[in-house]
């Protein structure tokens, strides 16, 4: 009897190991565990045995049955697990592109900065691109005879008057030459304090080359509160640069003069090409001028209806094109308006 148990187990094991299909495994199941199967047969034979014989043999046969069930299931699972797909796959083929679209690199940078400033609870404001001499020069504390008004680099519009009560200028309308006038528009919408950014395109009538464009993008931030020490400005600047470059960037402030700020600053950052050691990019100075800034001039606050004795603040104004150029080391500013997908596609 035990011989028979052992030989059945051995034959099943050997047949299973060579069974290569689910059908083959099923045939073996029928052969051993089916109604007329070998193991079933052994179990049927127990009835003809003496109680003593039956006890020993029954145990052995039941063990064999358990073994058979487990071995057959294991073989079936193994075959199911290793079943290969019906189609060959070349895993070295290129992946299917998710989507070829994207945001313009300048927009990407703008949104990065918007997010950074949103975290400082700044709102985003958008002023109009067609603006007036009143907002962009009068309110900005440009004296009536300031050369910037006379200069040819503002795109004045033909035959369009400006706001009627223009203080100093000729009440002309223009494509905005800078963003800062927009800050007055926002301030006029409600009382201080203010914390807002106002990015956008600005336009100047320049001869274009690799470093100069007629249309470019600026990013400005303004904070106005009761006490804004000028070092708070550095906080804004550091926020901008760390967002752009993904790491802290050394900056320095020095005196600079702009009509709409007092005091005004020029802000330099350590040259990211040479890490401040001096190279051709930074003209061997180690620093690159990145943005002007400063405390809003009392006349600007007054123009916006804000009492300069009670409120103060800080402006920063970044040339976004230039920052993007520095981030990627792009050498020609004209590419930004070229609409060439071969260029724009690269910015993910």
């Amino acid at each position: 009897m035990s011989d028979s148990v052992e030989s059945i187990q051995a034959s099943l094991a050997s047949k299973l190991s060579s069974a290569s299909s689910l059908d083959g495994v099923e045939l073996l199941r029928v052969e051993y565990l089916g109604k007329k199967g070998l193991i079933t047969g052994l179990l049927k034979g127990l009835g003809a045995m003496s109680p003593d014989e039956r006890k020993g043999a029954g145990q052995a046969i039941n063990l064999l049955k358990t073994y058979a069930q487990e071995a057959i299931d294991a073989r079936r699972d193994a075959l199911l697990d290793s079943a290969s797909p019906s189609f060959p796959v070349d895993v070295t083929m290129p992946g299917l592109a998710v989507s070829p679209g994207g945001l313009h690199p300048i927009t990407q940078m703008m949104y990065d900065l918007d997010d950074a400033f949103a975290a400082l609870n700044f709102e985003v404001f958008q002023g109009p691109e067609v603006s007036t001499e009143e907002y962009d020069f009068d309110y900005m504390n440009f004296p009536p005879d300031h050369p910037a008004r006379e200069s040819m680099d503002t795109y004045w519009l033909k035959n369009v008057g400006g706001d009627s009560h223009s203080a100093g200028g000729n009440g002309r309308t223009c494509l905005r030459p800078h963003l800062t006038g927009g800050s007055v528009r926002r301030m006029m919408m409600g009382p201080p304090p203010y914390r807002f950014v106002y990015p956008g395109h600005v336009y100047r009538n320049e001869t274009t080359d690799a470093r100069h464009e007629r249309a470019f993008t600026q990013y400005e931030a303004l904070i106005v509160d009761r006490d804004v020490p000028f070092t708070a400005g550095r906080l804004l600047i550091d926020t901008i640069l760390e967002t752009v470059f993904g790491r802290p960037v050394k900056t320095r402030m020095r005196a600079g003069f702009f009509p709409f700020v007092e005091p005004g600053y020029e802000i330099d950052m350590e040259c990211q090409v040479c890490q401040g050691k001096g190279c051709s990019v930074c003209k061997h100075v180690g620093w690159i001028e990145v943005m002007p800034g400063g405390v809003p001039h009392p006349n600007v606050l007054r123009a916006a209806g804000v009492d300069p004795d009670e409120w103060t603040g800080f402006y920063v104004n970044v040339g976004l094109d230039r920052l993007v150029m520095m981030r990627y080391r792009i050498d020609d500013v004209r590419l930004f308006h070229g609409a060439d997908l071969r260029f724009l596609n690269q910015f993910r």
Partner: peptide, 23 residues
């Protein structure tokens, strides 16, 4: 987020490439 931004991000994610042209 400003509508302007949501529109741009939707179109960019939908396979369009943003360009900036002159005014």
């Amino acid at each position: 987020l400003p509508l302007d931004r949501r529109l741009r991000e939707f179109l960019a994610a939908s396979g369009l490439q943003e360009v900036i042209t002159y005014p």
